[in-house]
Design a protein around this nucleic acid. Structure first.
Length: 857
RNA sequence: GCCUCUGUGGCGGAAUUGGUAGACGCGACGGAUUCAAAAUCCGUUUCUGGCGACGGAGUGCCGGUUCGAGUCCGGCCAGAGGUACCA
């Protein structure tokens, strides 16, 4: 041992070197030469205050990919910025009286400091925050372009309204129907709001999922289901008797199961259907029913999980195929206004929600699909709807048809009758972007009593948020700001008001990747060069909303002529990572305790400070409220950034959750020492050598070359935990080879020379120190990935397991290319196998070359 | 509720295309070193029967396909993520 490795001094040293030599700056297209480009991006953080271990994991993974690409000769863009608008800043303003901007920028400064200690190979020159006026000004310009191109519309939508705080609440701020601060009953309020017409892109967003080969299958499936394209029938049920209503023609419904029309037993309207509203004006009981439904909430989850509620309007409609039959019209809380026409027909026998409803309110249940093997005379449906395949019966002209044939037949008939037509429907709704909040991007619109909605002239952009606001009074400060709000109309010069709503923060994160790509000069050509992102990395919780919005926005930017991206797809490769979890503890009185406030004595847990008993809770996602967060800074200070990085990349596969443990961190620290010990003994090692016949040397060289190939592949396939395991084995092999002949020592040096470079993506600081210890040229962070001798990867002998009736009974060592016959013969001669065959006749022998021999008796 | 995913030793997990289940790490246990400890190094470690040789069982549960299933199919159970105003 010559020198001890101390991360506390080595890590800052190397970071200074990287900074001084500016090695992580992406080259402009003109300087890149033949190097292919690689745009590596991790989802940028919300500056909530402190970086957490989830950030460490996310950015460590991205950094592995970025550093690996760089070593493979790519021109890499790996930027970082801040998703800086959002509710927590306003909450902080209300709680502490600071300005949201001040709070946000202070957080950014702190978190930038934390992230920079991780040794990430980031190009900081492109950094921005979405709350920078330069950024949101461009966003406002894009908004106006979209408006001009007809991609934006205004319509009414519901919000959660807190009548005490006089403010709009997010769904997560509504707890059991009450406002989180005021505790008041939340009511629903209709507001006219701005919408991006994402539904115009529904087909493109759905179809192009097929082109995203480097996206996880599950994300594509989730998005496809979210878009929810379904072919069906939109048709009218005519009223049985004429009614004094504006909807005198009847009720338009949408169905995906027109084949079951003969099983219809009711028609149901959404509580928000225009007809419902009209009827409620004449009927106080119905109005009361609507209020009951509204109290359930606006989230899909709340509506779907609520008990089925119905209200009989007393109206009746005609069955389209049976003149003698009429159906009752109900209002039902499970019918969503946002989907289809806001009205359905109910076929209880073949739809679970319909049967729940029918059983509750005593409505008819008429089966019309007969499962195979059932008797038409006796078949019935109890409380579980039958949704499977079968033959239609009790269905007039549809009798005997399958579901797939019955659907077009029913549609054809309805079309001939002039009652409706086959249509395509989407679950996807337009994207509501208006928020009644201060800390967001102002919508660049001026509301003029004469000219209506007037875009802010381009020369007046950005519309900057006013600084002089207070949060003493609830509600949106923009709404009561005297000078900012009141302006003159750019069109007529008359008195007018600004739109005081701001944009949904999802808008900010829907195009930041393009802003990074465009570089400091916001050059469209540079954006075209870097786009699309080659590898995007982030949490799986964004699988639907953020990723769908970003896919929409890049298409909209393309079609508005803002971004040159023919495919419209922003992310060519996507990886979704799991969360970091940690153990939780609770005190006697049920309060959360941080794990280091708890100790164990004689098998019992207790709170150190009070001495009172404590209990261990579940292992959960790290969160402040559960007091189970681990501060990355403390870890970095005591163990070094490499240890933190190594830990979050070890053990768990990247897509799965990983539990933070103290023991795991210590294990990582121990490994750093082991690696250093290998390099520390190499200063005297021979630098030159030749491949030779020395057995031990050859074996070690095989290990090194195989490991390098394995790590290379593992990184490309996002199996960092496998790469870590391989590095462990490799270091173990190098360590064992400490003494030996000249040839072995050379093989050891060669291995170390390769290892330093393979280690760089994972533990870049340690790798630099190792590289320096063996006189590597320059910085290892810019060294090329090691070359591999392919000959060393091939084994010529393999061990084949031999099974008898599928159970492993022995093994044989054979040449790699042994013939089936020889393998059979050798397997049959193996003594342990012979015992099990026990003289019985062999029925069959399966030989899978290079894999296995199975003898069936 | 609905959509998606996950489930393997004491723990995190590995297992290529259906082909030796438990790589690698953590922990635990035993040993070496040490006056002692820390650190380090070596060994054992799925459960179970057996002194042993060697068996039996085993990848959330129930069933199926196959020469062969952690992997494929059907049905359950449990947990996680999303559910359109958290980011």
């Amino acid at each position: 041992m010559t020198e001890k490795y101390t991360p506390q001094t080595a890590e800052p040293h190397w970071r200074e070197q990287w900074k001084a030599q500016d090695i992580f700056r992406a080259l402009p297209p003109a300087e890149a030469g033949d190097a292919p480009k690689a745009y590596i991006l991790e989802m940028f953080p919300y500056p909530s205050g402190k970086a957490h271990m989830g950030h460490v994991r996310n950015y460590s993974m991205g950094d592995v990919v970025a550093r690996h690409k760089r070593a493979k000769g790519y021109n890499v863009l790996h930027p970082m910025g801040w998703d800086a608008f959002g509710m927590p800043a306003e909450n902080a303003a209300m709680e502490r009286g600071t300005h949201p901007g001040k709070w946000t920028y202070a957080n950014i400064d702190h978190m930038r400091g934390q992230l920079s200690t991780l040794g990430l190979s980031l190009d900081w020159s492109r950094e921005f925050a979405t709350c920078d006026p330069e950024y949101y000004g461009l966003q406002q310009a894009a908004f106006l372009k979209f408006l001009d191109k007809g991609m934006i519309t205004r319509k009414s939508a519901k919000v959660n309204w807190d009548p005490v705080d006089m403010t709009v609440l997010a769904n997560e701020q509504v707890i059991d129907g009450k406002g989180w601060r005021s505790g008041a009953d939340v009511v629903q309020k209709e507001l006219t709001q701005w919408f991006f017409k994402i539904t115009d892109y529904a087909d493109s967003l759905l179809e192009d999922l097929n082109t995203l080969e480097r996206w996880p299958e599950k994300v594509r499936t989730m998005q496809a289901n979210w878009i929810g394209r379904s072919e069906g029938l939109q048709m009218r049920f005519e009223f049985a008797a004429s009614v004094p209503l504006s909807h005198e023609d009847g009720i338009e419904i949408f169905t995906t199961r027109p084949d079951t029309l003969f099983g219809a037993s009711f028609v149901a309207l959404s509580p928000d259907h225009p007809l419902t509203i009209e009827l409620a004006k004449q009927n106080p009981d119905l109005e009361a029913f609507r209020k009951t439904c509204a109290a359930i909430g606006t989230s899909e989850e709340a509506i779907e999980k609520a008990d089925k509620l119905g209200f009989d309007t007393g109206l009746r409609v005609k069955h389209p195929f049976d003149e003698d039959k009429t159906l009752p019209v109900w209002i039902a809380n499970f019918v969503l206004m946002g989907y289809g026409t806001g009205a359905i027909f109910g076929c209880p026998a073949h739809d679970q929600r319909d049967i729940d409803f029918a059983r509750k309110y005593g409505l008819d249940v008429q089966p019309v699909v007969l499962p195979d093997g059932e008797d038409a005379a006796t078949y019935n449906v109890a409380d579980t709807a039958y949704t499977g395949e079968g033959k239609l019966f009790n269905s007039g002209f549809l009798d005997g048809l399958s579901k797939d044939d019955g659907i077009p037949a029913a549609i054809k008939k309805i079309e001939e009758m002039g009652l409706g037509q086959g249509t395509v429907n989407y679950r996807l709704r337009d994207w509501g972007i208006s928020r009644q909040r201060y800390w967001g991007c102002p919508i660049p619109i001026i509301k003029c009593p004469k000219c209506d909605m007037v875009p802010v002239p381009e020369a007046d952009l950005p519309v900057v948020l006013p600084e002089d606001v207070s949060f003493d009074v609830p509600g949106n400060p923009l709404d009561r700001h005297p000078t900012w709000k009141n302006v003159t109309c750019p069109k007529c010069g008359g008195e007018a008001e600004r739109e005081t709503d701001t944009l949904d923060t999802f808008v900010d994160s829907s195009w930041y990747y393009a802003r990074f790509a465009a570089g400091v000069n916001n050059d469209p050509e540079e954006a075209a060069y870097w786009m699309p992102v080659d590898q995007y990395v982030g949490g799986v919780e964004h699988a639907i909303l953020h990723l769908l919005y970003a896919r929409f926005f890049s298409r909209a930017m393309r079609d508005a002529g803002i971004l040159d991206l023919p495919s419209g797809e922003p992310f060519a490769g996507l990886f979704t990572q799991g969360m970091i979890t940690h153990e939780t503890y609770k005190s006697e009185d049920g309060n959360w305790l941080s794990p280091d406030e708890v100790s164990e004595k004689d098998g019992a847990l207790f709170h150190i400070e009070s001495g009172k008993p404590a209990t261990r809770g579940a292992i959960e996602k790290m969160s402040k409220s559960k007091k189970n967060t681990v501060d990355p800074t403390a870890i970095i200070e005591s163990y070094g950034a490499d240890v933190a990085r190594w830990f979050v990349l070890s053990d768990s596969p990247p897509e799965r959750d990983v539990e933070w443990t103290q023991a795991g961190a210590e294990g990582a620290a121990r490994f750093v020492k082991r690696v250093w010990a290998v390099f520390d003994t190499l200063s005297q090692a021979p630098r030159d050598g030749k491949p030779s016949g020395d057995k031990a040397a050859l074996a070690l060289r095989r290990v090194s070359h195989k490991a390098t190939a394995g790590i290379d592949k593992a990184i490309e396939e996002f199996r960092f935990n496998s790469a870590v395991a391989t590095i462990h084995e490799w270091v173990g092999a190098l360590k064992k080879a400490e003494s030996g002949g000249e040839e072995l020592l050379y093989a050891r040096f060669e291995g170390a020379y390769m290892l330093a470079r393979c280690l760089t993506p994972f533990m870049p600081h340690l790798a630099e120190s190792c590289w320096a210890a063996i006189d590597g040229k320059g910085l290892v962070s810019v060294a090329k990935w090691p070359d591999i001798d392919q000959d060393l990867l091939v084994e010529n002998e393999v061990t084949l397991p031999v099974q008898v009736n599928g159970k492993r009974r022995g093994e044989i060592i054979v040449a790699k290319d042994i013939s089936k016959e020889d393998a059979e013969a050798k397997a049959l001669a193996e003594p342990s196998v012979v015992t099990f065959i026990d003289g019985k006749p062999v029925k069959k022998i399966i030989v899978v070359p290079g894999r296995i021999v199975n003898i069936v008796i």
